[in-house]
Computed example of a mutant assay.
Amino acid sequence: MIEAGGANGRTLTSYPSIRTDLRNAGANVVDEEVARDGNLITSRSPDDLPAFCSAIVELFGQAGEAP
């Protein structure tokens, strides 16, 4: 994502070890279980998997709704 320029302007979360790389690529990095930016969902670690899965289910549930 960084190499492709996809992090620029996005709100993301990640392992602490790559946060500096994301910031340098133009991302707004937050230290939260889950960060959702449009259809992009990121989480920090496997410990956050329950929150990550809930966010994905919520996003998929909205897919059938009218804008």
Rank of each mutant, 00 (worst) to 15 (best):
A7R: 07
A7P: 08
G9E: 08
R10S: 09
T11D: 02
L12G: 11
T13W: 12
T13P: 03
Y15V: 13
P16V: 10
P16Y: 10
S17W: 09
S17A: 15
I18G: 00
I18K: 00
I18Y: 10
R19D: 11
T20G: 11
T20V: 08
T20M: 08
D21S: 12
D21W: 06
L22S: 08
L22A: 08
R23E: 15
N24P: 01
N24T: 05
N24W: 01
N24G: 15
G26P: 06
A27Q: 05
A27D: 02
A27Y: 02
N28G: 00
N28W: 02
V29A: 12
V29L: 12
V30G: 02
V30W: 00
D31K: 06
D31E: 15
D31W: 01
D31A: 14
E32G: 00
E32K: 14
V34T: 02
A35V: 09
R36C: 01
R36V: 11
D37I: 04
D37G: 02
D37H: 10
D37T: 02
D37V: 01
G38Q: 07
L40K: 05
I41D: 07
I41C: 03
I41F: 11
T42M: 14
S43N: 07
S43I: 03
R44N: 04
R44L: 05
S45Y: 06
P46S: 10
P46H: 07
P46V: 14
P46W: 09
D47K: 10
D47N: 08
D48H: 11
L49I: 14
L49R: 09
P50Q: 05
P50I: 03
P50H: 06
F52K: 04
F52E: 01
C53L: 15
A55I: 06
V57S: 11
V57Q: 09
V57W: 00
V57L: 14
V57R: 13
V57Y: 10
E58A: 15
L59I: 02
L59D: 06
F60Y: 13
G61Q: 05
G61R: 06
G61S: 09
Q62C: 01
Q62M: 10
Q62P: 00
A63F: 15
A63T: 06
G64P: 00
G64Y: 04
E65A: 13
E65K: 15
